[in-house]
Nucleic acid binder design. Structure first.
Lengths: 233, 233
DNA sequence: CGGCGTGTTGATTATGGTCAAGTTCTGTGG
DNA sequence: CCACAGAACTTGACCATAATCAACACGCCG
């Protein structure tokens, strides 16, 4: 079963995870540093905001959200994480995590201690490049989203979210057209910078347009191309 | 003069630039890889979007903007760059630059070829950590801004911009309360996800509130704390 | 069955986009 | 030095969108 993997090589996620661009030899060495088969119940924190960054984490199964809590107590959601995604990269900024990462469902994950990671980055140019690539990609994507969020209206934001999620699910060999949202409307709204009423209304508009079917948290995309057409090109 | 610097150690910007966290020995090695005293006229491109990432750049004097041009021809502005800031980090994503970086004023800059940088990152743990720190910081800031842009209204966005700029100028020993914007209202609007009319109106509102003086591109902050109060805390 | 958390729908209002005049600034040439 | 043209900027009127406040429906647990 997936939760008894012994190595990255035998892991079904290797194709989209850290080892994706590593040589077999480098993957073998990385293997030795990974703490596997860890789990967390829904609602528990994988990373506590403010804590020292002592490891990187990779989602293995389930999903999670990254929340930044502002001083007035309002939490904004920076990202949702799917299996194969590396979590905690913002910690490189000053060695402390800025976000609380919370499991949305029962979570399985891998842990890579920073001490080991730093040693490996010294020795393995491929891993070094991979971490730089991940950070660069995260940075680029966050900047793109920054621009998009500032320009695009509510439906465009929701369409972007659905289309992105669809792509990410497809990458993981899951259905890109029929899936279940693991987050509440409230979390979705906080991620998109909207109110939950507006999220609800926009989903309703898509439904009425015949582009999606919504049943609670289950979504079926009937016309993904219509959603994609709402996005800036 | 500033444009005849021979080394990072004698450079006035070293305090806020790449060498800020490096040992003297590491700074000496970095020195050997830096191409100095380069210049560009206003309006010229320091980095062309789509080109292979063959170097990192550091602004030495003047300022620049990073633009991402979308397929419908609209350009959105991801960031403005001041002296001491490293430009081109998004290139780590896939080895190609995603943004056009354009000089807003006559620009002086340093260039660090990637081949040399990669060699140095192998040997110098401090430099490796510094690049990771820069990327992590950029990522974190872009995510924070993504959230903020999605939530905050026009005046809040403009206030954030002015307060940030003020801080960045202060770091460089320039007046944090009296400065000249190097970008047009149009560029400012595109950076903030607003129309130039709204930028103009918001500046007008701040002026009428007695918080700033505006004279074309010259800005005097009379009540920075009032501006800061508009931001989410 | 009841109750609470989650989600939907409706009415009203404020914010900022759009379109359209104007005004100021800047640089150029007489 | 002034006149002028074009760009950059400001201001106004109107309208569409999403936030707010409020009521209501659904689903899931005991």
């Amino acid at each position: 079963m997936a939760n008894t993997e012994l190595s990255c090589r035998s892991c079904g996620l290797a194709r989209i995870c850290l080892p994706a661009h590593l040589s077999p030899e480098e993957t073998r060495i990385l293997d030795g540093a990974v703490e596997r088969n860890r789990a967390l119940p829904a609602g528990a924190s994988l990373i506590r905001a403010g804590r020292k960054m002592d490891a990187l984490y990779v989602v293995r199964g389930g999903s999670a959200k990254s929340c930044a809590v502002s001083m007035d107590g309002h939490e904004s959601i920076r990202a949702f994480h799917l299996p194969g995604e590396v979590v905690g990269l913002e910690g490189f900024a000053d060695g402390h995590h800025r976000c609380e990462v919370v499991a949305l469902e029962p979570l399985r994950y891998c842990r890579i201690p920073m001490t080991r990671l730093e040693q490996m980055m010294e020795k393995l140019p491929g891993l070094r490049r991979e971490i730089l690539r991940l950070l660069g990609q995260s940075f680029d994507e966050a900047q793109r989203m920054r621009v998009e969020m500032s320009i695009v209206d509510a439906r465009g934001r929701l369409a972007r979210f659905l289309v992105d999620l669809s792509h990410r699910l497809q990458l993981r060999n899951l259905s890109p057209t029929y899936f279940r949202l693991s987050m509440s409307r409230r979390d979705l709204a906080r991620h998109l910078g909207l109110t939950l009423e507006t999220v609800s209304r926009s989903l309703g508009a898509f439904r009425q347009a015949g582009w999606i079917e919504v049943r609670a948290r289950s979504i079926k995309l009937l016309a993904p191309e219509a959603l994609a057409a709402l996005l800036p090109r």
